[in-house]
Design a protein around this nucleic acid. Structure first.
Length: 481
RNA sequence: GUUCCCAUCGUCUAGCGGUUAGGACAUCGCCCUUUCAAGGCGGUAACACGGGUUCAAUUCCCGUUGGGAACACCA
């Protein structure tokens, strides 16, 4: 029998990082086994489900490149079928109508809690004749859960788990308004979608036991379960907004690459020997649900950032340019110089951990960051703080800049290696430190003390732009002193 | 509170009775060097605790402690 898995988020918010991992594991398992990866939107909670959230989930999955098979299933559209199943169970005597009010149920839970028991429904209407039913109350349908014995589930991740059936209470299948609950819907949908493996968050583990009996009551095959541990925040508690339980979209906005996120999420709770950098192809080949760890893992942003740097360095230059183009265009009008960014990409991507950084560092190719277009002058203010250290030695800097200009003016060929060779020769001749000469030029050309190799930058700019920036800064410094 | 799950460096993890307990991120040195990265080399750093079982326990069993999850007419 071929594998069918599904990712079934409820559209009550964005797709968070934990959901993304659940989706990834399902997707990998499907691709690994050559099975199907289905998507089901669990929108039975009409109050909290939004179109916005549905769109966000689709967008996030697409961005992560976790493509699903078949059309997505919207659970609410199948509500009639779900209700039908509930009614059939009543007819078979496997479920019953319950007329308890919300207040009564709350009271019941409080009483159990006071006695030190698990709060749950006490089965008041389980064996009570319908003739006793109050007139003006619309009933819910409850499932008759077994009251004795034990239930055993062999979870693919958690192993064999046994619970006492006294833990199970009679869960609501159909609400008073006739809409199905999650417990009913999942089971019915998973059955009709022919899902063979239910891979989901650990928080559903206890649900599996209740669902198990529902499968049995319907005489359906119980799927394999795999409950993967949740992701925790850096402090070990449940991941919340405070920790970075952000939407996938927000990680995109922070400049992360989808392949970096996939790799990070995969390694969180799963490993393959000493492999850290794992391509998607390798992941598909290696992934097995059986060796997913059982303990929850903490989310470590530093490791994600590091991994992102690795993937940026590996990425194609054109693709990176396209990734940062919107950010660059936001920042400057000089779109004609994008080819310079592309030429400089090898030097730039070596130094960036995120696409934001990459865009930041690339800006100088488009315009000199410390040159203010409006006033047609340089500003010290916009230069980074380090510059001040060098600006203290203005006279020296003017001198070095002039030496460089004189040298570069004689060049016909603006080749990277040639520039380096000649500047080194000059420094040796005049007994100057290469760093002393290079740093003022770096500030003049890139507006910062941090940049890719200056010789590379110069060769990319070419003679005119290089000398023009050097001269402009020289003049600015002269005016200062 | 009740039930279930979990436990190796700060973090993610390898280990599946006998290892100098390995790797990665982070961190700290050094090297390389025009800055910053990247890279190279090296350092600090872990088997929660207590009982068993065994010739031998990080590894198997039990308990303690500590963490987590679930207990809705939410999903």
């Amino acid at each position: 029998m071929s594998v069918v898995v599904r990712f079934a988020p409820s559209p009550t918010g964005f797709l968070h990082i934990g959901g993304a991992r659940t989706a990834l594991f399902n997707w990998l398992y499907a691709r690994h086994t050559g099975g199907k990866f289905l998507l089901r939107i669990e929108d039975t909670d009409r109050e909290r489900s939004t179109q916005q959230a549905i769109d966000a989930i689709f967008e996030s999955l697409k961005w992560l490149e976790l493509n699903w098979d078949n059309e997505p299933v919207f659970q609410f559209s199948r509500a009639k079928l779900h209700a039908e199943v509930a009614k059939q169970l009543v007819e078979k005597g496997l479920a019953y109508y319950c007329y308890c009010s919300v207040d009564e149920l709350t009271k019941m839970r409080e009483e159990s809690l006071a006695k030190g028991l698990t709060p749950r429904y006490n089965g008041y209407w389980r064996d009570r004749p319908v003739s006793e039913a109050p007139r003006n109350v619309s009933p819910v349908i409850r499932f008759k859960a077994p009251q004795n014995g034990t239930t055993i589930i062999t979870d693919l991740v958690q192993g064999r788990i046994e619970i006492d059936n006294t833990q199970l209470d009679d869960m609501v299948l159909l609400r008073a308004d006739g809409t199905p609950t999650y417990m009913l819907s999942v089971v019915v949908d998973d059955h009709y979608m022919e899902v063979t493996h239910v891979i989901r968050g650990d928080d559903h583990l206890t649900n599996a036991f209740r669902q198990y009996h529902l499968y049995k009551a319907c005489q359906w095959t119980v799927p394999e379960f795999a409950h993967i541990p949740l992701i925790h925040g850096a402090d070990g508690t449940k991941l919340s907004k405070r920790h970075g339980a952000l939407g996938v979209e927000q990680y995109k906005d922070m400049g992360f690459l989808p392949e970096a996120i996939r790799n990070y999420l995969l390694r969180l709770g799963w490993s393959h020997g000493n492999s850290e950098i794992i391509s998607t192809e390798q992941a598909i080949k290696w992934f097995d649900i059986h060796n997913v760890g059982r303990a929850p893992a903490r989310f470590d942003l530093q490791k994600l950032i590091n991994l992102n740097g690795v993937y940026i360095r590996q990425a194609d230059n054109w693709r990176l340019l396209e990734d940062i183009r919107p950010r660059l265009e936001e920042r400057t009008k000089k779109r004609t110089k994008m080819n310079l960014v592309l030429k400089g990409m090898n030097g730039l991507k070596e130094r960036a951990k995120t696409l934001i950084e990459l865009a930041d560092h690339a800006t100088f190719y488009l315009e000199c960051p410390i040159f203010d277009d409006k006033n047609d002058t340089y500003t010290q203010k916009s230069a980074d703080d380090n510059n001040n250290r060098y600006l203290a030695k203005v006279a020296n800097m003017i001198n070095y800049l002039q030496i460089l200009i004189d040298l570069l003016t004689t060049f016909n060929n603006f080749d990277y290696l040639l520039i380096e060779e000649e500047i080194r020769k000059l420094c040796k001749r005049q007994e100057l430190k290469v760093g002393d000469v290079v740093m003022p030029a770096r500030i003049a050309i890139t507006g910062s003390t941090v940049s890719p190799s200056l010789f590379e930058v110069m060769s990319i700019f070419g003679k005119d732009e290089t000398i023009s920036r050097l001269a402009a800064y020289r003049d600015f410094l002269s005016a200062l002193s």
